[in-house]
Amino acid sequence: MANIAAKRIKREFKEVMKSEEVAGGTIKLELVHDSWTELQGEIAGPPDTPYEGGTFLLEIKVPETYPFNPPKIRFMTKIWHPNVSSVTGAICLDILKDQWAAALTLRTVLLSIQALLSAAEPNDPQDAVVAKQYREDIQLFNLTARHWTNVYAGGPTAIWEFNQKVQVLLDMGIDEDQARVALSTFDWELERATEHLFS
């Protein structure tokens, strides 16, 4: 790993450990294999959002050319959000692409991702299906996102009706994640989701 990248990550790491967000438990940063090229981030779902009470893990890969190029970050915890792929966890956020600036740090990036959970940008979607639901039926979107937060991120609100429907598909031998994606995609209409899965 290039010298400047490794040195900078070390300085950032020290800095972030002293930050009030780490002290307050809203973000976390950990090394993976002590290599400085790969880290694991953690953000708390912001209050007053469907992600509240959930803990979301992020994979952070630091390129050789850091900080002249942005870190590569994706959600490892599955999440239902217009700007995050519900399948791969890829994030659509301008500062991780063409709006990157070398003075941004892993701390400011994690805080920006957390802010994205509070204020989605459905007009610049990463996941078109989620964005469509967000625009057309915000209540159903909020319920779906809360359900995903409960199942994958340890959020507090179980939604009985959704769990029942997932169970119906599980009983048909469908994989759990696949069943959940299909139901979420087809607005929790069991018939359409089933048709899609078996077509």
Binding site: P67, A103, T105
Partner: peptide, 14 residues
């Protein structure tokens, strides 16, 4: 020339 203490380079953070 740097005249006061405490500032760092925003790129390498040194």
């Amino acid at each position: 020339t740097i005249e006061s203490d405490g500032k760092s380079c925003p790129i390498c953070l040194k």
